[in-house]
Amino acid sequence: MRAMVRETHLHVEDFIYPIFVIEGENIKNEVPSMPSVYQFSLDRLMEEVTEAYELGIRALMFFGVVTGKDEVGSGAYAEDGIVQQATKLVKEKYPELLVVADTCLCEYTDHGHCGVIHGNDVDNDESLKLLAKTAVSQAEAGADIIAPSNMMDGFVAVIREALDEAGFTHIPIMSYAVKYASAFYGPFRDAADSAPQFGDRKTYQMDPANRLEAIREARSDVEEGADFLMVKPALSYLDVIRDIRNEFDLPVVAYNVSGEYAMVKAAAQHGWIDEQQLVIEMLTSMKRAGAEIILTYFAKDVAAVLRNS
C-alpha cells in the first residue's frame, strides 16, 4: 500500500552521468576526494560509457582534464579538444546516447577562471565570444545539448545566436541558470584541475544567502532562449529548485555536485550511514522539490539499484 501511494519516483531516465576525460593513454585515475569516480583517457573511456549504457543510463556529460592550458582556454573550443574527441567517440558507438556539453573555460585556462582575465577582473564580453565559439565546436562534434556553466551575463543569448548562425537551431541550451558560489565544488576542482589560481568566483557566481536573485537570474535566461534551467548545487538549495519549478514551465535540472557526493562517500566509508538508502532519499528529495533531471555522480549506483528493485 505504501508503494501504491508513493508520490515521487526515481527513474534511470532522470539521470545525467558526468565523466572526466583526461589527456594521455591507458589512464584510469581515481579522484582521491571522490571515491569510485575516475579520470579516463580516451582509449579507456568506452569501458565506463558501456557500463553506464548497460545500466540504462542514456545521458552523459564530459569534463576535460588537460595539461596544455593557456590564458584564453583554447582547449575548450579546439576541434581536436579532449571533450570533442570524447563526444565523437561515444556517438560512433552509441549514437542514441545523449551527450550534454558543459560549456565553460575554467578547465582549460591557466588561471582557472571561467572567462578571459584582464588585470584581476573577468572580462564578461570577451569571455562570451569564446564561450560561443566553444558551444559551436561542441555541437559540431556531435553534442546534443549545450550546457553553459560560466555564469557570464548574457551568455544564453550569445550562445543561442552563435548556434543558430552555425546551423544548429535544433540544439537546445541547458543553462546553469542558478549557480551559487559554493563550498561544495572542492572535489570537482580536484578532479578537473580547475581551481582558480587567484581570487574566487564570487563576482560571477551567486551568493548562497540569496533566493530572489535566483528567480531574476533564471528569468533572464528564459528571456534569452534557455530550454532547461539548472540549479547548482542541489542539496542545500531545494527551496530554490521549488521556486524555479513554480515560476517557470521549462524542465528543471538539479546538479548533485561533487561535495555532496564526497561527504556521503566519506560517511559511508566510516560506517556512519547506510549509503544506498541515503542516496536514494537525497535524490528523491531533489525530484520532490521539482527537478525533472538530476546530474549526479551516483547515477550508476542508483541505476543498478533501480534495475534490481
Rank of each mutant, 00 (worst) to 15 (best):
P95R: 14
I117L: 11
L163E: 06
K129T: 02
A139M: 14
E71L: 13
I82K: 05
V90F: 05
A135K: 08
D70V: 01
Q85D: 04
V156K: 02
A143T: 12
H113C: 05
V99S: 13
G115W: 08
E71M: 02
N124R: 10
K129E: 05
V90S: 12
T87A: 03
A101T: 15
A162T: 02
M151C: 15
D102E: 11
H111I: 14
Q84I: 03
T169E: 08
G73R: 02
G167R: 15
A141H: 11
L131C: 10
D164I: 09
E96P: 15
K91Q: 14
G73A: 10
E107G: 07
E126K: 12
Y94M: 10
A147S: 13
D123W: 11
A101S: 15
Y77E: 01
G73I: 04
V65W: 11
V122R: 00
I159D: 12
T134P: 01
D110H: 15
H170W: 06
V100N: 03
F62M: 13
L130I: 03
G142L: 11
G167K: 09
I159E: 14
P172K: 05
L163C: 06
C106Y: 06
L105G: 11
A76I: 00
N150C: 12
H118I: 12
K88P: 03
I159M: 11
A135Q: 06
K88S: 07
V100M: 08
L128T: 06
E79R: 03
I145N: 01
F155Q: 11
M152V: 10
I82S: 03
M151L: 15
V100H: 06
T134R: 07
L130E: 00
C106D: 13
I117W: 03
K93V: 14
V122I: 01
